[in-house]
């Protein structure tokens, strides 16, 4: 069996440990720690609601994430490729990028007219910084001889950004996009815990309030599966676009 598939063996193993722990717990604790079978049943029964929640969540995640990637790349490549701009924005990047974007959630919800707009905004902030930092460092570290070469071949500034710096920065941009995707999911669910009436984060919060732990755990596992699918999709895209980067 190839090494990369061996990791899949871990999942049945974890479920086995989970079933075992649920079995040996005293009966009065079982409702706090539901067994795999109870969770599977809850998951099956909730699939319709969870699917609706997925659609609602994606309506926030996709626009927020795509806007973040576009803005980060369009802005990050010129900044990274221009020495003075890099120095000019360096302090801002050092201050703003490490702020955990979750702190913006309550304020964004208060500030923006609808929940959806504020949730898109926080997803945007969360995904923007990692991609932006990737684009800046990628465009800044283009080998000098590539730059000389582009100049000798008659390139203007814009052509250089578009045809050289962007491509050279793509590996770094994709690294940032991976981190940004994880941030986007975290912020999405946090925002939904706060203020949504539909969506994946809302589902988990809702059943936690009712102490319906099988459904809550089912919601967590389902959210995990959605995140995993999104990350896999991104990895596929990366593999396809960076075929030359070996």
């Amino acid at each position: 069996m190839p090494h990369r598939l061996s990791g899949l063996l871990l999942f049945p193993l974890l479920v086995g440990v989970w079933a075992f722990v649920a079995e040996i717990l005293p009966p009065q604790s079982r409702y706090l720690f539901p067994a795999p079978l109870a969770v599977a049943r809850a998951l099956w029964e909730s699939l319709g609601v969870l699917w609706q929640g997925t659609v609602a969540s994606m309506m926030i995640l996709i626009p927020g994430y795509i806007l973040a990637v576009l803005a980060a790349v369009l802005f990050g490549i010129p900044v990274g490729a221009t020495t003075w701009a890099r120095h000019f924005f360096a302090p801002l990047m050092r201050v703003a990028a490490p702020v955990p974007p979750t702190v913006y959630v309550p304020y964004a919800i208060a500030l923006l007219p609808t929940f959806r707009a504020s949730a898109i905004f926080v997803v945007f902030i969360g995904a923007f910084w990692p991609v932006f930092l990737g684009a800046v460092s990628g465009a800044a570290t283009v080998p000098e001889r590539h730059r000389d070469n582009a100049r000798v071949l008659g390139f203007g500034r814009w052509e250089y950004w578009r045809r050289v710096a962007f491509h050279a920065a793509l590996p770094a941009i994709f690294n940032g996009m991976g981190v940004g995707m994880a941030m986007a999911f975290i912020l999405l669910t946090v925002a939904e815990l706060f203020g949504a009436n539909v969506g994946l984060g809302h589902f988990v919060q809702y059943y936690a309030d009712f102490a319906d732990y099988p459904r809550m755990v089912a919601g967590i596992i389902y959210t995990g599966a959605v995140t995993f699918s999104a990350m896999t999709l991104l990895a596929q895209l990366q593999k396809r676009m960076l075929f030359w980067n070996i």
């Binding site: 001889r145 590539h146 000389d148 000798v152 050289v164 491509h167």
Partner: peptide, 19 residues
């Protein structure tokens, strides 16, 4: 006064764009 296509330059490293 500056680089131009009329003066082609080839480096030791071929420096092809890998993408």
């Amino acid at each position: 006064t500056g680089p131009a296509a009329e003066r082609g330059l080839v480096f030791q490293d071929p420096l092809l764009f890998p993408w």
